[in-house]
Design a protein around this nucleic acid. Sequence first.
RNA 1: GGCCCCAUUGUCUAACGGCUAGGACGCGACCCUCUCAAGGUCGAGAUAGGGGUUCGAUUCCCCUUGGGGCUACCA
Length: 424
Amino acid sequence: MSVKVRFAPSPTGALHLGGARTALFNWLYARGQNGLFILRIEDTDKERSTKEAVNAIYDGMRWLGLDWDEEPYHQTDRLEIYRKYADELLAAGKAFRDEGAIRFKLPQGVQAVVFDLLRDKVEFESDVLDNFVILKSDGFPTYNFACVIDDHLMEITHVIRGDDHLSNTPRQLLVYEALGFKPPKFAHIPMILGADGTRLSKRHGATSVIEYEKLGYLPDAMFNYLARLGWGYKDQEIFSRDELVKKFTIKAISKNPAKFDFDKLKWLNGQYIRKALPERIIDLCLPYLTEAYGTHDFEYVSKVVRLFLDRLVLTAEIVPLAKYFFTDDYEVDPAAVEKYSAPKVLAELKARLEKVDPFTKENIEPVFKSLATDLGLKLGDIIHPCRVALTGTASSPPMYDVIEVLGKERVLNRLGAGFKPART
RNA sequence: GGCCCCAUUGUCUAACGGCUAGGACGCGACCCUCUCAAGGUCGAGAUAGGGGUUCGAUUCCCCUUGGGGCUACCA
C-alpha cells in the first residue's frame, strides 16, 4: 500500500509554527515515499472556526511551498458521514444517547496500548478511558470520532501529528476497533516551545508563519529551519528541499520538545540571502523600499541592494540600512560626527570630486589616494569623515561604492559645509 | 491531583554498549579590512541526580528531580 498522509489543522487562526512543522514533516514523508499528502480542515468547532483562518492556512502552506494533493476536505461537508457511523454504533449497542449527544460505550476489559513509530509501545492505564462523546448535541462530531472516520475513509497510512494527541490515541483506537477499521501507523512528534520552555504563544513574538514573510524571511530558510527543529541528519545544517525529501525519515525525529531559536533562524536566513541570486533579493527588497521611500527606480534600487547583500539578515532590514540612499532625512550619529570631524579635508575632497567624470568608483578611488598623499594623511583619515558626512554613520558598505551609487549631485551636496541631514 | 511523554553545553542536534562526547546558532578572541558586515582560525561551554546491569554506560533498567502534554458536547 502506498503512503498517504494528511495535515489536519483546525481553522481557528493563522498557520502557526508548530502546525507548519507538522505539515512539513508530513509533506516530506509523502514526497520522499512517492506518496500522497492531503489537507483536511477540521472545522467541527462551530465557535472557533473561521473562513479567514482557512485561507490563512492555505496562504501559509503556499508560502512554505507545501503543495497538497486532492482538494482539501472540510469536515463540516461530511456531517452525514459521521452521523451514519454514529448510528451504526448506536444500532450495534456500542454507543448510547446522552441528552442529545451520543457517547461511545466503553467495552469491558479494553487494553489501552498505542504503538508509536517513535516510542514503540505506549501503555495507558485502562481506567483513563471513559464513555466519551462522539457526536455533540449540535450534530457535529468530536475530534476523536471524525478523525478516525476520515483517516479510515481517506485511506491514511501514517498519522504524523503533535504529541499532544498521544493521550487521545487510545480513545481513537477504540473507535477503530468498534467500527472494524484497521488503524494507521502513528508517529507523535514533539511540540515546539518558546525560548522560556513554555508552549509557544504570541508572547514569544511572531507565531504565525505568514508573519515571517512580512518580517523579511525567505520561505526556504524557514523551511530548512523548521525541518531541523526536532530532526537531524549527521552534522548537516543547510539542506535544499530535495535533500530534505531524500534524507527525511520518521525514525530520525527526536522525541524531546524543541525550543524555537530566533537567532538561529536569522542566521539561516542570512545564509539563504547570500546563496540566493541577487535578482531574487532585489525583488524582495523593492516593495519594502517602495513603501518606505516611494521609490520605483528599479535600476537604482538594484545598485543599492547589491551593496547590502552581505549585510542583510532579513530583507526588510534594507529599509533602515539603506535609508541615506533614498532621502536626506536620515539620522546622524553624534558620536561618529564627534570622532571623525574633518571639515577642511572634506572641503578639499569636494573640490576634487567635482572634477570627476564619469563619476565611477574607478575614477573616485585615485582622488582619495592622491588627496591622502598631498595632505600627508592616511586614507582612513579621509574615508571616515567622508562616510559620516555621506551616511550619518560610522559604518556602511565600501566607501567608493557608496559614493558612486549615491551619485555626484548627492555626494557634493552632502560634502558641502552647509549641508545638514533633515533629521539633525 | 490522576494518566502519558520527554531529558547530551544557554539553544538546535550527532555519537552499532567501546575514540579526547562531534557539528551548528549564540558568546569571546584573533585574522582579513576604509567602517560595518560577510568570510576564515581559535576558545569557553553538556551527558540532570542517585542506584543498578555490564569488562565497559550518553546509550539498557529502576527511582528521584525537572520540563511538556492530556484529563471538554476544543482540536
